[in-house]
Design a protein around this nucleic acid. Sequence first.
DNA 1: CGAATGATCCGA
DNA 2: CGGATCATTCGA
Length: 160
Amino acid sequence: MLLYDGPEGRRAARLVEVEAYHGTRDPASHAFRGPTPRTTVMFGRPGHAYVYLSHGVWYCMNIVAHESDIAGAVLLRGAEPLEGFADGARLSGPGLLGRAFTLSIAHSGVDLTRSALQLRDAPAVPPREVARGPRIGIAESATSARPWRLWVRGSSGVSR
DNA sequence: CGAATGATCCGA
DNA sequence: CGGATCATTCGA
């Protein structure tokens, strides 16, 4: 689950949909062309957040998941509200999730084990409730044979 | 389906 | 410096 003690109070959500990106080995990854000012955090330590602006509007969050040279990361795509959100808030989709947590570029690079923004353990999801498939919005060549999108079957926090 | 939003990257 | 890109979302 994701926890944020931010300016608007404490917010928590259960992560139910993610996608994996294999850093420098994955053409769909922002890290594919090597480190740039925006993507250097992906070449740093695992457990830190990589936040970027998508389509001029949406702040999307990744968790750095590999040691430096690989620069792999996990994109958070969907969650179920647990605490601190308005009734009926939708966290289904990476942009909506970022907006619900009032994320911005300032959150890129924070240590998710020590900051106001934290990744916390949550009860394990039974394997039969976990579905997997191709990533969304990625060119066929990049995503073929890589079912790196994982989600909790039937959750309202999963994007379409 | 298509528009709209803006930081970022690359090539020139 | 300019044009293309981008892992998006919403509303007809």
